[in-house]
Design a protein around this nucleic acid. Structure first.
Lengths: 340, 340
DNA sequence: CTGAAAGCGCTTACAG
DNA sequence: CTGAAAGCGCTTACAG
């Protein structure tokens, strides 16, 4: 009952050869207008659709892009990083604008990469979003390069590796946020977020932060940097450690909005007033950021543009055109949480 | 340089036939252990991956599911409904747990459905999420049924149509929320959200809401129902209309969290205190809901379970097993916005 | 346990 | 402008 029509069925009904059907359906100029219309009418009538597996096999391309989303190994499965989610939205849109389908896969760093989409000919190229630990991740990148896989990635430029990246100017974003808060008279900043080569984006934000401190004649004190990954929980924990340390502080820089939000919760639990007692800033401008209490001051990363750039660059790569890495600026979004 | 190895290359190197390579790679018990290991070793060495287009074409199935996400036609492309986003997350996970890939597509209701994934053999089945207008949408469903497409959908049960759905008990959720607020002494509720057959979920919530009103000896007054679609903007607009109407009220039921959040903004702009002057409740429990000020009381829809059920049911459909529709309960999440 | 062969449904040079 | 034919890279009955 549900056996699908093939191009042969149409050929038979139209009284032409199967080759002609194929041409007519692809609007080849080689085929006579009249024949074309007849074939297309019959195709519509039979609800015929070209079998993609067959045509992809034949043409050796799939008009499909794979998106590989890596999650922090620790993150529970309750909530995907909202930042990536909004990226996903814009990538999906960009793909469909270009006539490409999008295959989405969440990768847990611990298990094997089943990042075989391209090798497997299911996708023409890959977009990489996020990673657990950058050091592990770099090895995977290395592998992709060796396999000659076409891919682009979101993130800080991978120094040394010939990889096309789209990322934000994390250093400048960190600088800008910090400077803004300092201009409002804060003296003692704490930074919550891992600041090592294991998370280069956070590291860049931290370095920008430090630069702003020294430019404003403040000392950088390592004791004020607390590790955290990009979850609300982790931000909460880091802020607890800060509070328990009895170090004096009047400002917190959360390496991501999620971290900042967790920190706000920890502070408010202790009746610390935000921003009067402590200014808090985050990074990303995820949708939640404008709804927190108080609303969060942050550095916005333009996910819409980022998604478009990623897709655009990947398509160029697929078409063997020259492509380079883009570093996008962030924009300072001032809300109530920083006290100005 | 980048020509990929095929099973023939492996066969050549292993000194066996291509059929044997294929069998060995699929761990067929027919093949000798020793041969199998040799073949697999060579495959690994050559970084060989089975071409999915070829194997899908041959086996006539793709181990891929397509997710079609319909957006409200009016929603701008800045922000996807967070509720669907979290659904997307859980569907992605459920798919990869089952060894299926996920093709994601955002559909704008206005343009043609290019919902051809299944017809096209790119996917074995389809999951439908959201819709613009239910009445238009129903026609599309009808079409899918006629084409014998295997699909499941999220949403209120489609009466009459033989469709497998997973949805929440919107009526009961609406009842529960309303009753909870009434128990706290509120007397005059407004309902923000379209309550017609164009959005059956909202309608069910409204009907549950009305039932709770009458059960508590309150009159249902149509004047207190204001249309809105599920965006923050639309909730804001509806609340503005409510405010401008000069109707007295001390509680607002937002048909979704997004609507409730927009309404809160409108109220707070007018210095209306939430919850002292007006209690506000929403529906969905999107991630933002716990971060609003005050945090939003709402009815949680279990997106994790929903995603799993959708995938599970679709796979059963694909395997021609019997499947039925599931109506999940919602849970009342009491936070500060309702004043208790 | 293994191999030769057919065939999944297309696209596209090639010949006319 | 059209048709006959090859071939994309697999899987799997069939024969041994």
């Amino acid at each position: 009952m549900k056996s699908k029509a093939t191009s042969f069925d149409i050929a038979y009904r139209a009284g032409v050869s199967q080759s002609t059907v194929s041409r007519a359906l692809r609007n080849s100029p080689l085929v006579n207008e009249e024949t074309r219309l007849k074939v297309q009418a019959i195709a519509r009538e039979l609800n015929y659709k070209v079998d993609k597996n067959a045509s992809n096999l034949r043409t050796q391309q799939s008009a499909t892009i794979a998106l590989l989303l890596f999650e922090d190994p620790t993150s529970d499965d309750s909530m995907i990083n909202p930042f990536f989610l909004s990226m996903l939205g814009s990538i999906t849109r960009a793909c469909s604008d270009k006539g490409y389908d999008l295959l989405v896969s969440f990768q847990q760093m611990n298990n094997d990469w089943h990042a075989d989409f391209e090798d497997t000919n299911k996708a023409d190229g890959i977009i990489l979003l996020g990673y657990g630990d950058f050091v592990d991740y770099e090895q995977k990148l290395q592998q992709l390069i060796e396999q000659n896989t076409r891919f682009v990635r979101w993130g800080a430029e991978a120094k040394g590796l010939p990889i096309v990246s789209v990322g934000c100017d994390n250093f400048h974003g960190g600088y800008q946020l910090t400077e803004h808060v300092l201009k409002n008279g804060r003296k003692q900043f704490a930074f919550l977020g891992g600041a090592s080569s294991h998370s280069p984006e956070f590291l860049d934000r931290y370095l920008g932060h430090c630069k702003a401190l020294t430019d404003n004649n403040l000392k950088v004190d390592q004791a004020y940097q607390f590790d955290a990954i990009s979850t609300e929980e982790s931000g909460y924990d880091a802020a607890r450690k800060l509070l328990d340390s009895d170090l004096p502080f009047d400002a917190i820089f959360g390496a991501s909005d999620l971290i900042a939000i967790g920190a706000m919760r920890a502070l408010q639990e202790q009746k610390v007033n935000i921003p009067d007692d402590v200014a808090v800033v985050g990074f990303d401008d995820i949708p939640i950021a404008s709804f927190t209490f108080p609303p969060l001051t942050t550095a916005r990363q333009n996910t819409k543009l980022a998604g478009e750039l990623l897709v655009e660059k990947l398509l160029k790569l697929i078409n063997e055109e020259a492509v380079d890495t883009t570093l996008m600026p962030t924009s300072l979004i001032v809300r109530k949480s920083c006290g100005s």
